[in-house]
């Protein structure tokens, strides 16, 4: 009989590589790294063909920041699929609870009985609105300088993580409201692409006059969804770790 910890240790030791294999692998990795470094130095730089193209067509993209132009206009297909990847992971991690019990409701509930540490409460009162404001700024500034939907979503999700860690707020991901928020980004993106297809005949090639506005609409919806999905990933994984053993079957 051995304890759980010893059991884990034995399991871990059994999977470890023998020393000579570790040294051999270290040697192979060093050779690989040197070869990669050599290839980077020797090959030099190819002519920046795509950079020139992107700069040339920047006028037609509706935004002034070339990275945003590539992300949401020239290669918006990538961004569409990327939001779909996030949504798929969110669905995988989402707990299989029935959604009809809660119905449409606020998906963030505050348990009033739990009294917060006053310092923590004051910090949250300042930090959360500030993070949302910074997120909005990052979203808006993405059109002109570094920033955009993903950066904004990450900052807003950070505010949610702070709320979640403080322990007073619980995010109810099985409510309809939460599901709408999670899906919003992908669905708005697809709606824009489809309506564009009906009106102009091309799915993701925006008309020059409306490109800026369409990009902003897509980015706002994407920001909301990205923030919600990142927060969902955090809170659900945390709930899985925190849950008592017997209830986790």
């Amino acid at each position: 009989m051995f304890t759980k910890l010893e059991f884990r240790k034995r399991e871990a030791n059994r999977r470890e590589l023998p020393p000579f294999a570790v040294y051999a692998l270290g040697f192979v990795v060093i050779v690989l790294s040197v070869a990669l470094m050599f290839s980077v130095v020797v090959s030099g730089k190819a002519a920046p063909k795509l950079a020139g193209l992107a700069a040339e067509k920047l006028e037609a993209s509706g935004v002034e920041n070339p990275v945003t132009a590539v992300l949401l206009n020239f290669r918006s297909y990538d961004t569409l699929l990327e939001i779909a990847v996030l949504l798929i992971v969110a669905i995988a991690v989402l707990p299989a609870r029935s959604s009809n019990a809660a119905g449409v409701a606020h998906f963030c509930s505050a348990d009033k009985q739990d009294v917060l540490n006053p310092v923590l409460a004051a910090l949250l009162r300042w930090l959360v609105p500030l993070a949302i404001l910074v997120g909005g700024y990052l979203l808006w500034t993405g059109a002109y300088s570094p920033g955009g939907a993903f950066q904004a979503g990450a900052v807003i999700a950070g505010a949610g993580v702070a709320l979640s860690l403080a322990g007073r707020h619980e995010f109810l991901w099985h409510t309809t409201a939460a599901r709408i928020v999670i899906n919003l980004g992908l669905f708005v993106f697809i709606a824009v692409a489809l309506s564009n297809a009906l009106l102009t005949g091309t799915t993701l090639q925006y008309p020059v006059d409306y490109a800026g506005m369409l990009i902003l609409v897509v980015e706002i919806a994407a920001t909301v969804s990205i923030a919600a999905i990142l927060l969902l990933l955090f809170t659900e994984l945390k709930a899985m770790v925190d849950a008592p053993r017997e209830g986790r079957q």
Partner: peptide, 29 residues
């Protein structure tokens, strides 16, 4: 590339970071 910066790899990295976060979350799960 000296004076000019190619925006395409930047966009790829930005996409890559988000996919990496999603993949990490799935692996943790």
């Amino acid at each position: 590339h000296g004076e000019i910066t190619d925006p395409v790899p930047h966009a790829m990295v930005l996409t890559g970071i988000v996919v990496a976060v999603a993949g990490t979350a799935l692996c943790l799960w």
